[in-house]
Amino acid sequence: MIDPDVLKIETDLVVTALHQRYGLDFRQYSRASLERRLQGLVEKLALDHVTDLIPRLLHEPGFVDRMVNGIAVNVTEPFRDPECFAAIREHVFPVLRTYPYFKIWHAGCASGEEVYSMAIMLREAGLLDRAQIYATDINTDALARARDGIYTSEAIARGEKNYLAAGGTGQLADYVLQQYGSARFANSLRDNMVFSQHNVVSDEVFGEMVLVLCRNVLIYFERDLQNRVVDLFHRSLAHRGFVALGAKESMTHLASGSDFECLDRHARLYRAV
């Protein structure tokens, strides 16, 4: 079994290699999860040590992408935490109705289920035609899955309950094409979606968003980085824009949180003041 002190050094070295060679900054990621993910990747690649990642990282073309895609994985589902979507419908949609055109950013969209959820909710409110939805993630594999919008039929079936709890008026299945055990979200939902790679740790602002959703991303960061990312969102927002965080994330302990008021504590919905 690995000595924890050795594992800490190994993790530091990999983080240094990623940063110095590729500008990918994992220095302020929460260590316990990062170490777990690195060890998982080492097992998956049948390597002996975390430091065995370093020669491949430095000398093997394309390995860095595989590695980032292996350690920056997030899982989600349609309408995850339905109370979040219900709160957005209640607090944000009335504001959206006052705009002829608006932009929404899913920062850290993972495999995209929540992006399609948002599009469905906008469609049902008659607002989808006015929307431009940006969906970004650091993980290119996840982004490709999000762009495809193909999920298992089981995932869609499980999402039905969330969809109804979020205030859906039809069926989630109405928005997907079933094919051979998988389900693809309708093309009409994705007309106004743009998918692109973006790293909230190091990349710049996305301008004039009315709503930023960043769910279950901040928990992977240390406080300082959480602060910086919330500040990035603040600078990316239009006047009095909104931010939706994950069910276990909060601005309460963040200095940059003073730029926001909390609209719904349970749903973790915030608005710039």
């Binding site: 924890p4 928990i219 994950g246 069910a247």
Partner: peptide
């Protein structure tokens, strides 16, 4: 530990959550 999340302890003995699989 909340349902639907993993709970972890950091080396500085603070708690973290993760939504890993």
């Amino acid at each position: 530990a909340p349902g639907g999340y993993h709970a972890l302890l950091e080396r500085d003995r603070r708690l973290s959550l993760s939504s890993d699989e």
